[in-house]
Amino acid sequence: MLEARLEQSSVLKKVVDAIKDLVQDCNFDCNDSGIQLQAMDNSHVALVAMHLKTEGFALYRCDRNIALGINLVSLQKVLRAAQNEDVMTLKAEDSPDALSLVFENSENDRISEYDLKLMDIDQEHLGIPETEYGATVKMPSAEFQRICRDLSLLSESVAIEATKEGIKFSCTGDIGKGAVTLRQNPNVEKPELGTTIELQEPVALTFSLKYLVNFCKASGLSNTVTISLSNEVPLLIEYEMEHGYVRFYLAPKIGD
């Protein structure tokens, strides 16, 4: 059986908020390394991979691998009943047809108990190859979100170019064009506010802004985001948590 306790419900609430507009139904795979999820969006353009590691749980017990087939809209409805600071306990039998969620406040005088019906989801798992990326950029997640939102008002696509000069986001649309260039600017006192760029080789790729804006819904998970790029392979956007991550992969737009 599964029994997993999070000190703060906000962890799972933020993860679900981050991915619910990209995927609807997905398996939460529970095993001795924690709770993992991998799912593609309906159009098979983007993929999300999530891992909540056992170290992030105040209590974690999972005797055998259990797949929890969950509709994320339904899960979000149940999670609305949890306050951010509540302790959350997830419980499921070995072959479950429901997931039990218990929310307890810090004063220990309120216990909320919910059951979420589970579904059978036949989900394809993709093998994600180890990739040496040509460029890796670490920057404040709020700034990346602002750039994506601003450019999405002008165009459907953004060209991302990483060179030794910096990383440039540019787009052209019906009303005009726009570009934002970030130069390497490490912040010694507050690393989360700095921008670092590791460049192995120049990279130039084009991506759909609709997806990037969607990924930015994960900004609440981390102050920083890591963007990894290589020519002609999917972009990797990673939001790292204290004990886990949410990663988004996006296939590029190719040719003209």
Binding site: H44, V45, L126, G127, I128, V233, A251, K253
Partner: peptide, 14 residues
């Protein structure tokens, strides 16, 4: 603006 590639073209079934 290019043609949108499919993620399954890059990541194979496992």
């Amino acid at each position: 603006e290019g043609t949108q590639a499919n993620i399954t073209n890059f990541f194979t079934g496992a």
